[in-house]
Design a protein around this nucleic acid. Sequence first.
RNA 1: GGCGGGGUAGCAAAGUGGUAAUGCACUGGUCUGCAAAACCGGUAUGCGCGGGUUCAAUUCCCGCCCCCGCCUCCA
Length: 463
Amino acid sequence: MALILHDTLTREPRALTPLDGKTLRFYCCGPTVYGPAHIGNFRTFVAQDVFRRTLEMGGLPTLHVRNLTDVDDKTIRDSQKAGQSLADFTRYWTGKFHADCTALNLLPPHVEPSAVTHIPHQVRMIETLVKRGHAYTTGDGSVYFKVSSFADYGRLSHLEDRELRLGATVASNATDSDEYSKDSLADFALWKARKPEDGENFWPSPWGEGRPGWHLECSAMALEYLGEDFDVHSGGVDLIFPHHENEIAQSCCATHGKFAHHWFHVTHLMVDGGKMSKSLGNLYTLEDLQKRGYSPAEVRYVLISGYYSAPLNFTFHSLDAARQALQKLAKFAKALGDAAKNNTLIPGPFQEAWDTLNSDLNVPGALGAIFATINKTKPSTLTAEQAQQAWSGLHFMLKALGLNIPAEAEEVEIPAEIIALAEARWQAKLAKDWPAADVARKELDAAGWVIKDSKDSYQVVKK
RNA sequence: GGCGGGGUAGCAAAGUGGUAAUGCACUGGUCUGCAAAACCGGUAUGCGCGGGUUCAAUUCCCGCCCCCGCCUCCA
């Protein structure tokens, strides 16, 4: 079954079949490594991860390329502020990013190229664009892409000429713009001439020392690892314009290919019903949430629990709900029994959930179908074979969604006095000495332990 | 203003031209000395508002209101 995915460019759902007939090749715009990524960033990366997992579980191999932006205004500025070299600074934040990705159970991309290590590729591309008349140099040694040279510009974002011309008018009227200003405000930098504030961060080029423009890196790296034509390009909705629009323009003008054939954009995460921002104090990192006692798996659950194309409202209540939902999945898996475990993962009784997932990555619909199946499946009534199928189907879906269900509460050391207290309470209970039993239970509670009684035994667990 | 995404129960969130999945919360029951835990149930006459089409609309059409994002380097 082929995954049906909405395409931003054609604005319609389209079945994904690999251009080369074998491997689905896709590019994702990665993070700018100048600080900790927040959960909004991760909504996009997690959605891309579900995308990849869905393809692979469906039997289609992928080639996943995601870049690291390790040179731009922000990385240069903040590395200087931190008194570090750009390389040291971005290495640190790249490490943090990778740790978060691992915690969130994101499959590492097959290729993770960085802008700094692909300067020659970018320079070559600029040379081609200049040679073909799509780019021009300015007096200071910068190079700009000439937007008016690409007729299709604006097709992805559906921006009309009016908006683009608006920029041009402003440019011609600007009195404070420097003497090297570009022809049109819509034109964007491919190569930025070295400036004093860049410090040590400059590279040689045919146009003099400088550094590459932001938009170009993705085009150059996609070309290097995926070729002139590839299947899917993905990123947050905010990148549609100008970033992806510019990528299309550069790439189509520098090659003979069509660049990405399908565009997959993930809508932004909202927090408490509004935009996430530092000033509102509602910008969270994974670390922030872990400090509050939430697991990465719970965060991942929340991030995938909304349709990728619709706004998702993040709240702490939704994290609590995610915790319970994961527990419910874990309980079901456990109730199937150890004998149900097997290595064959097929959707089986969870076929409806799998179909739903393949329908434009409808994760909330798929989760609903998973729970619906669970609710009508009574583990105790299943034959050994049925239990195995249920286990297989559940784990097939969990793998496709990248959800790790909570492990059995690992054996925590229970202090001797707690064991003694619990035992005393149990004996009091057996002796029907209710007051004494209740006192013991209260003491345990105060100490952070809770009693779970069953017919003829009990359990003490940490609160 | 232009473009795009939304407005469904207390919260979150699917879905459909024929009468609303699912998770949380809430609530009833079983169990319990009472609880907790566990298990079994229940809970939207209604899908932003107003019109229209239709035997039938939350689902299609028209108008309006509100929220979010983008409109030059923010996932």
